[in-house]
Amino acid sequence: MDSVTIKAKGIYVTVDLAVGHLADMVVETGGRTLSPLHRAPWIDEPQGTIPADFPAGSARLSGDFLCAPFSRSDVEEAPLHGWPANSRWDLIDTWQRDGESGALFRLQRKVMGATVEKRLTLRDGHPFLYQEHGFIGGSGGISVAHHAMTVMAKGGRLAFSPKRIAATGSDPLEPDPTRGRFLLAYPAQTQDLTRFPTNDGGTLDLTKYAMDRRHEDFVTLVEAEHEGPGWTAVARAAEKDLVLVLKNPAELPVTMLWISNGGRDYAPWNGRHRGVIGIEDGRAAVGHAASLGDNWLKRQGIPTAFELADGRRAAFRQIIGSALQADGNPPRDISVDGDKLAIEMADGSASELPFDGAFLREFTPL
C-alpha cells in the first residue's frame, strides 16, 4: 500500500505512506473543485533525475507534512526535517461515524525515543482537514512544525492573524549566486509585514506574492497576543480561491514562510519550482540543536520545543481548508463563532464556513 485516501462529503485527502506527506487534498464547493495544496513537479519523473543525496521527503515533496525536528537534524541523526518527513508511516485505524471520517497513522521509526502518531479527520460538508500529531513517551526535547504548501499560477495576496514581529536569520537559503538567489535581507526584522528589508536596501511586501522576481527566501512570523486562532489566508489570483491554515498559538507560536519562486537553479529544482509558499506553523527555531539551546525566540519568551517524557503525550493540532474567493483579496479578520468560521473581508462583507470550533482550543492530551 503506497497511499491512503480518506473521504467525507465534499472533501478528500490522500496520504503518501512512504513519507507521511499529504499527497492531495480536494474540496468540492459551489460547483467547483478546489486543490489547495502543492505537489513538486519532479515527483512523477524518472528516479534518475533526482540527485542521489536528495532526502526522501524532498524527493516526494507535497501538500503538508510533519517536521520533527524542524530543519537540521543535528541532535539525533536523521535527514532534513527528521524521520517523520522522510520515512514510512503505517495505517493503524480508519473510521466513519456520525458524519465524520478519519484515519490514524504511526511512524515506523521513533523520534527521540517517542512513538509518533498522526490523526486526520474530515467532516461532512466541512471544507477543512483537521489534523493532530502526538509524541508518546521519549526523552529530551523536540522541535516541530507543519509544512503546508500551496502554489499560485499568477501570484496572490496574503493575510495573517496579528503578528508581533517578522524576522530572517543570519543566512539566506541560497547564498551562492551560481546556484540560486534571494531577495530579503539577512538578518533583518520588522513589525510591518508590508515593508520587510531587502538585500538591495529596499523593502518587500510580505502580504503580496508577486511572480516577477525569482527568489528563495525564509522568514519567521511571531504570533502576537490576541484572542482566537492563529491563521494564514492566501487569496490565489488565477485559482480564484482562498487557502486557509489555522492553529492554536499556544501550541505553535510561530509561522515560518518559505517563499519558493524559481530561486534554485540546481536539480531537481531547475528554476521551475515557482509560485510556491510554505506556511510552516511551528514550535521551533531553525535546527534541532538551536531549538533546544539559546535562541532569539526563547529570549522573547517563545517556546521552541516540546518536552518528551515516559508516560507523557505531547500533542498539537492544525487545520487546512479551502474556500471560494473570486476577487483575489484576502480576509481582514477570521474568527470562530460556535460551529462556524467567520470570515470578514476588507470591504466589510462577511461569510461563514462550517467549522469545528472546539478543535483548536487547548486540550488535555490522552
Score class of each variant (00 low, 15 high):
residue 2 D to T: 09
residue 4 V to C: 09
residue 6 I to E: 11
residue 8 A to F: 10
residue 9 K to V: 14
residue 17 L to V: 03
residue 18 A to Y: 03
residue 19 V to W: 01
residue 19 V to Q: 05
residue 33 T to E: 10
residue 40 A to G: 02
residue 40 A to Y: 07
residue 41 P to R: 04
residue 45 E to L: 15
residue 47 Q to Y: 05
residue 49 T to Q: 13
residue 54 F to T: 07
residue 55 P to T: 00
residue 59 A to H: 01
residue 63 G to H: 00
residue 70 F to E: 13
residue 82 G to Y: 05
residue 87 S to T: 15
residue 93 D to P: 04
residue 93 D to M: 03
residue 100 E to M: 14
residue 103 A to C: 07
residue 105 F to T: 01
residue 105 F to N: 02
residue 106 R to V: 10
residue 112 M to D: 00
residue 119 R to P: 00
residue 119 R to K: 11
residue 126 H to A: 05
residue 130 Y to W: 02
residue 132 E to Q: 15
residue 132 E to P: 07
residue 134 G to V: 05
residue 136 I to H: 15
residue 142 I to G: 04
residue 144 V to G: 03
residue 146 H to E: 15
residue 147 H to I: 01
residue 150 T to M: 12
residue 151 V to E: 14
residue 154 K to D: 14
residue 155 G to R: 03
residue 158 L to Q: 01
residue 164 R to I: 00
residue 169 G to T: 09
residue 169 G to F: 05
residue 170 S to V: 14
residue 174 E to N: 12
residue 178 T to F: 13
residue 185 A to H: 06
residue 187 P to E: 10
residue 187 P to S: 11
residue 193 L to K: 10
residue 196 F to Q: 03
residue 197 P to S: 08
residue 198 T to E: 03
residue 199 N to H: 07
residue 200 D to W: 05
residue 219 V to T: 12
residue 223 E to S: 10
residue 224 A to R: 13
residue 227 E to Y: 06
residue 232 T to L: 12
residue 234 V to I: 14
residue 234 V to Y: 13
residue 236 R to H: 04
residue 238 A to N: 09
residue 240 K to A: 13
residue 243 V to Y: 15
residue 246 L to P: 07
residue 250 A to N: 12
residue 262 G to P: 01
residue 268 P to Q: 10
residue 270 N to D: 13
residue 272 R to F: 04
residue 284 A to S: 15
residue 288 H to Q: 07
residue 293 G to Q: 11
residue 299 R to H: 09
residue 301 G to W: 06
residue 303 P to C: 07
residue 308 L to Q: 05
residue 318 Q to M: 12
residue 321 G to N: 02
residue 324 L to W: 03
residue 325 Q to E: 15
residue 327 D to T: 09
residue 328 G to C: 10
residue 330 P to S: 06
residue 332 R to D: 14
residue 333 D to C: 02
residue 342 A to G: 04
residue 343 I to K: 06
residue 347 D to C: 11
residue 350 A to V: 03
residue 352 E to R: 13
residue 354 P to L: 06
residue 356 D to F: 09
residue 357 G to A: 08
residue 360 L to I: 01
residue 363 F to Q: 05
residue 366 L to N: 13
